[in-house]
Amino acid sequence: MADRLDLPQGTLDMLILKALALEPLHGWGISERLQQISDKALQVRQGSLYPALHRLERRGWIEPEWKTTDNNRRAKYYALTRLGRKQLETQASAWQKLSAVVDRVMKLA
């Protein structure tokens, strides 16, 4: 756990969108998914996940739906909207460009 990374400002939203791109998930699922994909390198602070979800919902990028989980509990699932999918594409390409540039600068300097 020592080399856990802090998320740069604003990237949490993008990661949530990415996590939801495959299938609708509840909050817990998103946090587990992010941990799993990043091979536990990324630790989303539990407290900041939900405010981010509510913020994305307010913007209309994700859409909630109450569903029953496998072990029969009601949970709030979030799904990507069309607006959200478009947003993800924009943000992803912006991120790729930015990281490439930052990468190059770091190597050259």
Partner: peptide, 14 residues
């Protein structure tokens, strides 16, 4: 209420 339920679910999972 929904928010509380959502957080409770998370807490239980945790």
């Amino acid at each position: 209420q929904e928010m509380d339920e959502e957080l409770r679910f998370h807490l239980d999972q945790l």
